[in-house]
Every structure is written in structure tokens, then in C-alpha cells.
Design a protein around this nucleic acid. Structure first.
Lengths: 259, 259
DNA sequence: GATCACTGTGTACGCTGTACAGATCGATTA
DNA sequence: TAATCGATCTGTACAGCGTACACAGTGATC
């Protein structure tokens, strides 16, 4: 039976264990046999480079192997399967740019803002991250470290542990959600060779009648104001709004404290 | 040459036009030949049912055709390709539950909150929506209507058109971002047969040493407080925070107005 | 009745992940 | 030194994918 590209098999966690072992480096070195010509790190690096350059659809075991100058099946000496390799890719990516929030001037807001920007930049560097189905959160050491750093930003300001986690999740969710649509729109422009202007032109051919009929009044109004073509930065807007919202809660907690 | 599963080809927008034509219903009815045994709507329905039940990975042209009792190639009489079919699926899903915000009691906050909840429920019903790469936003009539309705929620409260759009985008981004991780965690539990408890148990085998070593102090603290196992509702928390944040801006605009 | 646009389908191609068998290498053991 | 044996590497094969293409059957129009 062929295996699903992403599905884990219900083998009682053996596949998960293999992933974890590779990430946390618990694999014992063999003493016998020829020296390995490759390494897990090299494979992960090649896979990330390929995914960065050509997207997730181009990421195949054969392509990765070809980039490393080996046969496809050689990869399976180092990695149990593609799904586990993707797990490793994700954790590797989280090892970039782990600036701790303590280095950021200011309070919780500046630190959390820096975290949000860091995540945003990460998605721009590695758009494929948004397309993979991350089976479970925080698999590896690097993604855990990243989350730990984010939590430090909201420590000691009167929030409960649950709220601290929820605050980070809220920022993270907004950033990844916006990144997904933003990046996909960018990629669609590249892929189809249709610019934003051409896109709206084609759209309006079909949408036109509905607009004339008075349906879609708000889209018409917002569109005529040029909001779809403008350089308005949705990331900056949303980030500040989410931080404002967290601020409301934090100030309320501080007020409760004083009382 | 085999075709990518999702990639559009740079054919000057012909593929996009085909999608749009199908969605906006501009296809002329043929007069000659046998009556079609299928319809685009039936195919889209079958595809959605299949994706709902078994996920995106199970969604293949052959499976859809089998569910309809026809050969795989028959589908291509109705739909140009899989990519266009997915476009149609997405727009069809947006036709569900288009309750207008005018029916919601209260002001912008209650209306926007209702929109967020509606979107959240939509993703829970159709998890595959979060996995597909939506090339462009607002392709079809239904998704456009949905956005129009959302914009109505924030109309006439002192925001510019750009800010109105950005407010909707902010809510949408948070909801889709959180839905993606939440749903994927749920699906991972189903797929692997590993419950959350087992998951954390396996994790801790490997994470343990790092915790003992004093790395990950915040994760340790938050974990010991039980925040990972708790029933804390991240959706409700985040939604209220985002609404709070938008409220800060809206109140500021209202104050400017008065001045 | 002939024409011909249209519907439906079987076959085939290049791609995918990966199971499996076999060849080769090289440190350990006899 | 020679035999052993685990570890590395790879070619082949299989089931499944999207879909191009050729062809058979249908039924309204001329």
C-alpha cells in the first residue's frame, strides 16, 4: 500500500518517537560498516533550500536526493520518511533568529511586538511553513525554545500562566493567518504571471454585473476608495490592534492588583 | 508533462477565467448531444463531502468520480481540472451560513464577533479549507458576499475604508491562524491514535533533560501550572482581545470626531 | 436519414512515496 | 590474516496521482 504524503500511521507512536529522537539527537553512532556519506543535517538543509526556492510542491525525495548527488533511497538511511523529514525542517527553521526578548528595549509590548515581527519574517523567508500540516505543536527543541522566549515576553505582568500562553497564541495565530493569505497572494502573482492589476481587471469582468445590481455594496464602496490597491500595511495595523487588545487586559489586571 | 497539483500555469489567465466563469455561472448551455448525467454542482458537493469526511489527502479525481459512479475522466467534461474544482469547493462553502450582521443585536463589536464565530464554525466543519493554498482571495460570488457582510459590521463607525478592510482582515487572520493549529492538533490525535496525554508523555521523555538543565524555564512554569492540559478556550480569549484592540482604535476615532 | 456537437471512458505517461532485495564497504572477531 | 557481519547505498517495483488523448455512443438539428 502506498503511503499518504502526510498521514502518520497508527503505530502506537513509533513514528513520533523516531522524529523526536532525530530532533533531540538521541541517535547512537554505529561503529561498524562504511562511514555515512551524508548526514541528517545536510539532508534537512538541502530540503529547506529546495522548499524555499521552489515551494512545497517541488519537495520530493527524488529532488532532494538529486540535489545531494545520491539516489532517492539513500535518504531513507537517515530519515524514516518524508513526513519526519518535514518535522525536522520545521524545527530547523525555528533555530534561526532566536533573539531573546530581554535584548529588546521596553516592556511586554515591545517584546511581544518583536516576537510577532520575527515570526512574520520567518514566514516570509520560508513560505512553505504555512502550507504544511503541523500535526502537533512544538515538536522539537528549537520550536520549544522559540515558544519559551515568547512566553518570557509576557512573564511577570500579572497574567496567569494560561493567559500568558493564550496571549502568545493570539499573536501567533494572527501572524500566521495573515502570512498565509499574504504570501499565497504573492505566490499566485508569480505563478500565474498575472499582476494584481490584471487580476482585478479579470475579476471585474465577472463581478461587474453584481456590482451594478447593487449587491456587494460594501465591496463596491471599499473598492472605489482604493483600499484593495493601496499600500496599506495590514500586518502593522493588525499587530498594533492585537497588542492594544492584550494591553486592555494587562492594564485591567494591573488595576485589579492595585485595588 | 505531469501537472502540479495546485500550480496554475502561466497561460495568461485562461485558467482563472474558467474558474470565474464556472463560479459566476456564465457557461452557455449546449443544445446538441446527450443530456449531461452530472452537473458541476453535484461534483462540487461530492468533492466537499469527501474532503469533509477524509481530508484533503483523500481528495482525488478518481475518488470523487467513484463516489458519483462515473469514470475519472468524466469529471473533466464539467471542470477544467482539480485546481479549478477546489476553487469551486471553497466558494461553495462560503455560501453556507451567510447570516447578515444586521440581524445581530448590538453594535460593531457584536456583529464582528458573530462574523468571527461564523468563520470559526466554518473551519471546524471544513478543516480542509485551511490546508488549501488559496491563490487569490475572494474568487467567487459567495466568498465575496461573505466579505461584504463582514465589512457591513464595521461600516459607519468612523473608520476609513482601508481601516474597515484591515479590521476584517485582522479578525479573519486570527481566526484562520488559530483554527489551523487547533484543527491540525485534533486531526493528529485522530490520525495517530495518540491521545493528548500520551502525546505529552512521549514528549516529556525527550524534553525532560532540557527541563532539568534549566532551559525552557517558561515552558516548565506554564506546563506545571497545567496550562497545556487545561480547558482554557484560546479562541474565546483571542477573539475578545482582538475585538478589544479594534475597540481602542474605534473609540479613539470617535473621540477625534467629537473634538 | 445524415450530420455533428456533445457526453462518457479506457489507456497511457510521468510523477509521487517507499518496500524490498541485493551489492558494497570496513571495523571487529577468530 | 581471514572471516564475519552490521551498516551504507542503490535499482527495481508497485500502487496511486492528475490529466492528455483517442474513441465510442447519444440525440437534436439540417
Amino acid at each position: 500500500m502506498p503511503r499518504d504524503e502526510t498521514a502518520d500511521r497508527p503505530d502506537g507512536g513509533a513514528a513520533v518517537r523516531r522524529s523526536l529522537q532525530l530532533m533531540w539527537g538521541g541517535a547512537p553512532e554505529p561503529t561498524r560498516g562504511p562511514k555515512p556519506g551524508l548526514s541528517v543535517a545536510a539532508i534537512v538543509r538541502a530540503a529547506i533550500d529546495l522548499a524555499d526556492a521552489e515551494g512545497l510542491v517541488a519537495l520530493s525525495m527524488r529532488r532532494i536526493a538529486a540535489a545531494l548527488g545520491v539516489g532517492a533511497m539513500s535518504l531513507y538511511r537517515y530519515v524514516p520518511g518524508k513526513s519526519e523529514l518535514v518535522d525536522l525542517m520545521v524545527d530547523e527553521v525555528y533555530s534561526e533568529d532566536l533573539g531573546s526578548p530581554e535584548t529588546v528595549e521596553g516592556g511586554w509590548r515591545e517584546r511581544l511586538e518583536a516576537y510577532g515581527r520575527q515570526e512574520w519574517a520567518l514566514y516570509l523567508r520560508h513560505p512553505w511553513m504555512l502550507q504544511i500540516a503541523q500535526g502537533r505543536p512544538m515538536l522539537g527543541p528549537n520550536s520549544m525554545r522559540s515558544t519559551d522566549i515568547a512566553l518570557r515576553a509576557v512573564d511577570g505582568i500579572g497574567l496567569t500562566e494560561e493567559e500568558m500562553l493564550a496571549a502568545v497564541v493570539t499573536i501567533s495565530s494572527f501572524v500566521s493567518g495573515l502570512a498565509k493569505t499574504t504570501i499565497e497572494a504573492m505566490q499566485a502573482a508569480d505563478r500565474t504571471g498575472i499582476s494584481d492589476e490584471e487580476w482585478w481587471e479579470i475579476q471585474s469582468e465577472y463581478v461587474g454585473p453584481a456590482v451594478v445590481a447593487g449587491e456587494l455594496p460594501m465591496l463596491t464602496k471599499v473598492g472605489e476608495a482604493g483600499a484593495f490597491h493601496s499600500m496599506f500595511d495590514h500586518f502593522e495595523f493588525g499587530l498594533q490592534r492585537v497588542l492594544d487588545g492584550l494591553g486592555v487586559l494587562i492594564e485591567r489586571r494591573a488595576a485589579d492588583q492595585d485595588r
